[in-house]
Amino acid sequence: MTLPSVDKDGYLLNLNDWSPEVAKSLAQAENIELTEDHWEIITLVKAFYQEFDLSPTSRALVRYVNQHLGPEKGRSIYLQTLFPPQPALMVSKLAGLPRPANCF
């Protein structure tokens, strides 16, 4: 498949270009193989964007996952394992969201 256009950091320019297939291709380029656990977080982060019109920073991501999926998954280490090296940046990228501000 041809990948939709992305910015210089690899984030989709247009959220509407996103599809699960696009996510798979983006993940492949980052050497991440998407499992059910990955999809659960990606889906949740898309909901975050729907609710707040913002991409999550690390702290916001951890809190939101904690609120919705419980404390076992709402931890930096869990998200770090799924989306290295920086979960908030990586998951926003794979979910087709803009790069989160104030995230480093």
Partner: peptide
């Protein structure tokens, strides 16, 4: 309005 409601989750 949506952004403001996110403040709590951003700390």
């Amino acid at each position: 309005g949506k952004n403001l409601s996110a403040l709590a989750v951003f700390g």
